[in-house]
Write a protein that binds this DNA or RNA. Structure first.
Lengths: 362, 362
DNA sequence: TACTATCATTGGTACGTACAACTTCGGCGC
DNA sequence: GCGCCGAAGTTGTACGTACCAATGATAGTA
């Protein structure tokens, strides 16, 4: 036999969940509930305390008890979970800093964790989030080019009214999701065009196959070449994954790609700075000079890009600003506003990894 | 006027925090507390409810109320707050990664925020923590060489049974605190000895005045010189703060220091890589060569150290490992175990910023 | 010795009352 | 129309009583 106060709490919980009370509505007063359920006021208060501890309602002395559906408070401080592939490597520190500064300005707390681009890690992190008092999420999608096994968890978040903003990549399977991404397709075009404008005709590419960014950058790259009536040769395009990124260039697929160099490949669009460095390392071993023998353009403008030799010409990711935009969108949604997705533009940073053949025509 | 139940709760909280009750001890019964405080049983129950919500005690019908030191439950997932001076700069990403990997392995959530070495930021972050469901804290002390204005907040955390592990620097005003720090005094000795063993006799120093690390490194540096009967000249020691670190070398104090070069200063112990870079920048402007005209040794072995020219000889901070140790200590404490502070050793990384005068004697 | 029944103790549930602190709103005076 | 004030309404604090449910020790019994 269930105690009365639990019964009352359940009834109220149900009434709130079913939409009988909307966000901000005043609940029946304690006196009214006392009559409605035929219990004492103390019992009613005990029941409401349960709801209050769950953050479902807030009580205001002298005023009433109110449903706080969206404006959950856990004590006034909003807790935002941030899930990225990596935390401390590459461009992620800057993105995280952008997120943190925006959140901190609004007195939000940031919970940070990393998937290492593994869907199983993503899964356990999401489950952890569901068990913890998180009010919103910023997620970098994991292997967004592949069907995601965790969409059910994202839908659960949605049901719990925990908004999610995706960054860098998102899951097309979740149509309602808000995302902040780079304009990867256009970035692919920009990179290919940059090389083509400088007179290169045999332009290869290194792309990541498990992230949507890789697919989009490839798409932009190939369509730019086609527009210029340049051939996109499959041998000049090489795909890699999270798992083999550090060694594929030394495997069979990579060897075939490197072999293209001897068949006249003059320039390469690299998925990002990291893989560009990997490529440059292999080229150095084979005494192939960058940019004299091969020109390279890559993405992200990470810290590496300005340090290595030769310095990389890359499309710059806005990093801090990017993180800030994502955090602000999330906070707007948590505050009840409507938000739309954003696609941010790349900006070109010219350095030394592309050989000067001739001036661009335009 | 504080309500009675809050007063009772505070008294009990205090009794638990002060160690009057040990882990697992039974609290006084409700009837006894009623007599002790001269309040009704309901009031006592209300007070105990507060402690129960904080996870300080558990109640067992028919048996009693017990202190559950560490066995808090919030929702199964432990939430660890991490407060550092910076998040994404310098060596902090590596430390954070170490913390995260240790926490993640135990299914803990990490909430990250930055003080930018400002006590007012530290204050507001701590207040935020007190309002949020955080089960433990890793804190890098802010301006640990100065009297800290926020010790009351730390004591409040202590009373709420939220353990704190300090890293890099701690507050001597809080005697019970567990900390994980580098052996800064010994580091100062190592740096000075390294230079002295290579034949340098006129050794200056650049130290940070607002962090305890700066004081300790200076202490090690000066005692090492004294042990070798080398003079510690005040003109060769320059102090800076968080606020002026980026410009003091161009101010009057810095100019006086640079001036020491012309009076025969041959080598400098730098507080960290960041300030070493700052110094090298100024030296370059004045056409003073490192290491030919001035040798430099610094601390931390940040990413910069291996990239700049000349590459820096530094004492290496264990970063990842350091973060992992701190996280593990905190988790042990949260699990109810006893933990002690740790002082980790530096390891020398020799590069190109110290001129070779002669072989060390030993 | 081992098991059981009993019973005092302890926290859990439930109701009642009284008053305090605060909000809201309507009415009054200006 | 504006602002002040007080009444009414609502939640917060505090005490009291009564009984229930679980625990654990004790005494009694096989």
């Amino acid at each position: 036999m269930e105690p009365k106060y639990q019964f009352v709490a359940e009834q109220l919980r149900h009434a709130i969940a079913s939409g009988e009370y909307k966000d901000g509505d005043a609940l029946l007063t304690e006196a009214e509930l006392k009559l409605k359920f035929g219990v004492s006021r103390q019992t009613v208060r005990q029941a409401i305390s349960l709801l209050e501890n769950d953050g479902l309602v807030i009580r205001r002395r002298g005023s009433g008890t109110y449903v706080s559906h969206g404006a959950r408070k856990h004590s006034g401080v909003l807790n935002v979970g941030v899930i990225t592939t990596y935390i401390t490597d590459y461009i992620f520190p800057s993105i995280v800093r952008g997120v943190e500064s925006a959140l901190s300005a609004e007195s939000c707390i940031m919970s940070l964790s990393a998937t290492y681009n593994r869907t199983d890690h993503e899964r356990s992190l999401l489950q952890r989030v569901l068990e913890s008092p998180v009010d919103g999420l910023i997620v970098e999608g994991t292997k967004t080019a592949l069907p995601n096994p965790n969409t059910a968890l994202y839908e659960k978040l949605w049901e719990r009214n925990i908004p999610v903003v995706f960054i860098n990549g998102y899951y097309p399977q979740l149509p309602n999701a808000v995302y902040v991404v780079m304009d990867d397709m256009r970035g692919g075009r920009m990179a290919a065009n940059y090389l083509a404008e400088r007179g290169f005709t045999r332009i290869g590419g290194l792309f990541k196959s498990d992230d949507m960014q890789g697919h989009l950058r490839y798409q932009g790259y190939s369509s730019a070449l086609q527009d210029r009536n340049l051939r996109v040769q499959d041998e000049m395009v090489c795909w890699f994954t999270t798992e083999n990124k550090n060694r594929f260039l030394r495997d069979q697929t990579g060897e075939a790609f490197i072999h293209s160099l001897h068949n006249g490949m003059e320039a390469v669009v690299c998925y990002n700075d990291e893989i560009a460095l990997e490529l440059m390392e292999v080229l150095r071993e084979q005494n192939i000079s960058v940019p004299d023998d091969l020109s390279i353009i890559s993405f992200d403008n990470s810290a590496y890009a300005g340090v290595c030799h030769p310095k990389l010409t890359t499309l710059a990711h806005p990093k801090d600003e990017f993180g800030r935009v994502a955090a602000e969108k999330l906070m707007n949604i948590m505050a009840g506003k409507r938000e739309t997705s954003a696609i941010l533009p790349w900006s070109l940073v010219e350095r030394d990894s592309v050989r000067v053949l001739n001036r661009p025509q335009e």
